[in-house]
Simulated assay, not measured.
Amino acid sequence: MKPDQILAILRKDQRNHITAFHRSQTSRNALAHTAGITLNYHEPYYEGWAPALEMQESFIGAAELSQVMPHLVAEPWGNGIIGGVVYRLKESAQ
């Protein structure tokens, strides 16, 4: 996905954001590690009758995230075992 496409999706709704997540990244003797980056967006088609489907997600790569990073604000969450960062558009980029 191109940077302008990602930014267009993020601009459509204030609930839209990017989430980078990890599990067992730094835990001692961890044999499993899960990580990923998703573009999360509100789907108005399902609003009101299918709440579980209102938020959709698409996986994106680290390279795609790095290309739009100058337009985003980072909100870290979690701890060393489970957590990540939620990225939202800066007000100046909306």
Rank of each mutant, 00 (worst) to 15 (best):
V86I: 15
E57P: 00
V68C: 03
G83C: 03
Y46K: 13
R28W: 13
H22R: 10
S66I: 00
V86P: 08
S92H: 07
L89S: 12
V68T: 06
H33F: 15
I81D: 15
Y46S: 14
R15S: 14
A62Q: 12
N40P: 08
P76A: 08
W77N: 07
D13S: 04
Q14L: 13
P70Y: 02
L89R: 09
A63E: 14
L65F: 00
G80D: 04
W77Q: 04
I9F: 08
E75G: 03
P70R: 02
L7F: 00
F59R: 11
A8G: 12
A74T: 03
R23F: 00
V85E: 06
Q5G: 10
G80Q: 10
K2E: 13
Y41T: 04
D13L: 05
I37C: 04
A32T: 15
K12N: 09
P70H: 00
T19N: 15
M1I: 11
F21Q: 02
G78A: 11
H33Y: 14
Q25V: 07
Q25I: 01
A50G: 08
G84K: 02
I18M: 03
G78M: 02
V85W: 00
S27V: 13
R88V: 11
N16V: 11
H22V: 09
A63Y: 04
Q5K: 13
E75Y: 15
Q14A: 14
L7D: 01
L89Q: 09
D4S: 10
